[in-house]
């Protein structure tokens, strides 16, 4: 299922959440990478018909999202960044209800609900009230509801944000497993989330597309621009002001840095093989502080 976005804009007063985004998602598992506030959620909410754009056009499998939102909802599975369920229901009851809302015929419903529960490994807990679930379980239930009705398009907004590292890895694997023939659009600000799984990705920065292509192409963006060097703690300020620092650690009282820069920094950097994160930093221009925060 192909997604075509043309010159999409969404303004909140003076805030330009999306500022002329054009993007072609051919299918498969596609990552939408960008720092907080880049406009990922806004883009996805427009895609899943929850939000009307200021201008621009989006089609999903040829269906115009603005003109025929009802048809888009029929082929859609959506996991928002933030969501909840009726806490007094069990997972089974909740999914059964959602199955009806998704127009699954009564006979197929029971089977499908059981299948998606199995898929997200919640079969054992299906008869428990959702109010007693952990964050990871709720997240998995979120996937389960999205899978109901076997949607051709899955839109997943920052699914790993609230998870601990172990849950996060399990979650990534789950996403990969369920992607199958579907188009999966996954937004995240964590490079590792898309690294292993995505066949294509785009980097969103301040409401604009900073990069669109394959992960390999993104890595290439950083080739010849990634350096390793050691500096005195006193030199830090000067270096950070001029180049993008990917990571840093202390070795014997000195700082060992990995930086992205067009020229060899201070003339004493050693060129190293680039990774996806370096590519992301190279196109998004994110500073160290965010870089460190996002590094797992």
């Amino acid at each position: 299922m192909e997604i075509v976005i043309e010159d999409l804009r969404k303004y909140y007063g003076a805030v330009r959440a999306l500022d002329g985004v054009s993007l072609h998602v051919p299918g498969g598992m596609f990552g939408l990478l960008g720092p907080n506030g880049a406009g990922k959620t806004t883009l996805m909410r427009i895609l899943v018909t929850l939000l009307a754009p200021t201008s621009g056009r989006v089609t999903v499998g040829g269906i115009d999202v603005m003109r025929e939102p009802a048809r888009v909802r029929e082929i859609l599975g959506y996991i928002p960044q933030e969501f909840g369920f009726y806490r007094s229901l069990t997972a089974y009851e909740m999914l059964d209800y959602i199955g009806t809302m998704k127009r699954i015929p009564p006979r197929a419903r029971k089977r499908q609900v059981e299948a998606v529960l199995e898929e997200v490994n919640l079969t054992a807990d299906a008869k428990r009230r959702i109010g007693t679930y952990s964050g990871g379980m709720k997240q998995r239930l979120g996937i389960a509801q999205a899978l109901l009705g076997d949607p051709a398009l899955l839109v997943v907004d920052e699914p790993t944000a609230g998870l601990d590292p172990e849950e996060r890895i399990r979650f990534r694997n789950l996403l990969v497993r369920i992607s199958g023939r579907r188009t999966v659009l996954l937004s995240t600000h964590i490079v590792a989330d898309v690294e292993a799984s995505c066949t294509g990705l785009a980097v969103l920065r301040q409401g604009r597309i900073a990069f669109a292509g394959t992960p390999e192409e993104l890595v290439e963006r950083a080739r010849g621009r990634v350096w390793q060097l050691e500096v005195e703690p006193g030199e830090w300020e000067a270096v950070a002001a001029r180049v993008q620092v990917v990571s840093s650690r202390t070795v014997g009282g000195r700082l060992q840095l990995r930086v992205v820069a067009d020229e060899n920094p201070l003339g004493r950097g050693v060129p190293v093989e680039p990774g996806l994160e370096d590519g992301y930093l190279a196109v998004s221009g994110t500073t160290l502080r965010e870089g460190m925060l996002t590094h797992v």
Binding site: L50, A70, E82, K102
Partner: peptide, 21 residues
């Protein structure tokens, strides 16, 4: 207000339903 309170609304609104609900 229940759907919004429980944050089920963003899920609910993505389902292919109408006024009947």
């Amino acid at each position: 207000g229940r759907s919004q309170r429980t944050r089920f609304a963003s899920l609910e609104e993505s389902y292919p339903t109408g006024a009947e609900v």
